[in-house]
Design a protein around this nucleic acid. Structure first.
Lengths: 143, 143
DNA sequence: TTACAATTATTGCATTTGCAATTATTTTTC
DNA sequence: GAAAAATAATTGCAAATGCAATAATTGTAA
């Protein structure tokens, strides 16, 4: 690059910069909606994983979205206290737990899915179906 | 939507979910590289704005990326201590400051731009030029 | 012009987060 | 099979973050 490399150019053309801005907006939208269920975004992420796959260990949950073990521990403390999940002894290893959604956690599922759909719709509502698909395709390759 | 609405579907098709994942990865990449200049990502964001426009007030900086006033205050405390920026009295209002990059702050600029370019390249390096442009276009409409 | 409301910036305090250390258990190596 | 290394999960403590309160100044309305 030439002398075009100034702060303005970097900011307005940087894909990373734009993604960060969008991500922060999404975060705030999720926070606001999750507050009514007394959940933070990371607690929500853990809950979604538990709903998706029954009986994972905490380490396995962490690998799903590279979240450190201590954060899983604390998210589960909260989710367990709220009655959404339960830690059960692992069938073969005494140091691990398997994590399970309680009935109340399972009931929470659809409400969380709805929140995700609303927030997504608010974000990409202005795009055509074709653009939405293109966008999703590219994102899928980057994730 | 029908009964397809389960956690797996939500996770794998949600644009928001994918953006969040990518954003976290970008954040970590930026943190790592910014550490050598003793900067956090939000301090970096403030610094970029100062480099882009000389003499903004703190409130104006905050509006650029909807960052709360107290966060600007603290980011500037750090940037000022590090010698990258200076608060000067506002010409017409005694309660406001204007913010200016010091020579050392101006010298930092190109190094920050380089970091942004590297992190971007690492993210979208695998995409064709056409896809990159498409992606940038869509992002621009969403930001 | 005086009182009231709004703006700009900062700071105290509580909560959240991240790192490193710890405990308990399991696996590997010799 | 005993010692050492690795894994699973938790927790103490320091740093970062967010909220609410404050101080100082400026704008507005009576």
């Amino acid at each position: 690059m030439t002398s075009e490399t100034d702060a303005h150019t970097v900011r307005t053309t940087s894909i990373g910069w734009m993604i960060q801005r969008i991500a922060r907006r999404l975060d705030r939208a999720m926070e606001t909606r999750l507050a009514q269920h007394d959940l933070s975004v990371s607690q929500f992420a853990v809950m979604m994983t538990v709903l998706e796959t029954e009986g994972l260990t905490q380490a396995e949950i962490g690998q799903q979205f590279s979240m450190p073990a201590y954060a899983i521990s604390r998210a589960l403390d909260h989710l367990e206290k709220a009655g959404y999940v339960a830690r059960r002894p692992h069938p073969t290893s005494r140091r691990a737990h398997t994590i399970h959604a309680t009935p109340s956690g399972v009931a929470l599922g659809p409400q969380l899915f709805k929140i995700v759909q609303e927030v997504n719709a608010a974000l990409v509502g202005g795009l055509s179906e074709a653009d939405k698909n293109t966008f999703r395709d590219i994102l899928t390759r980057l994730v």
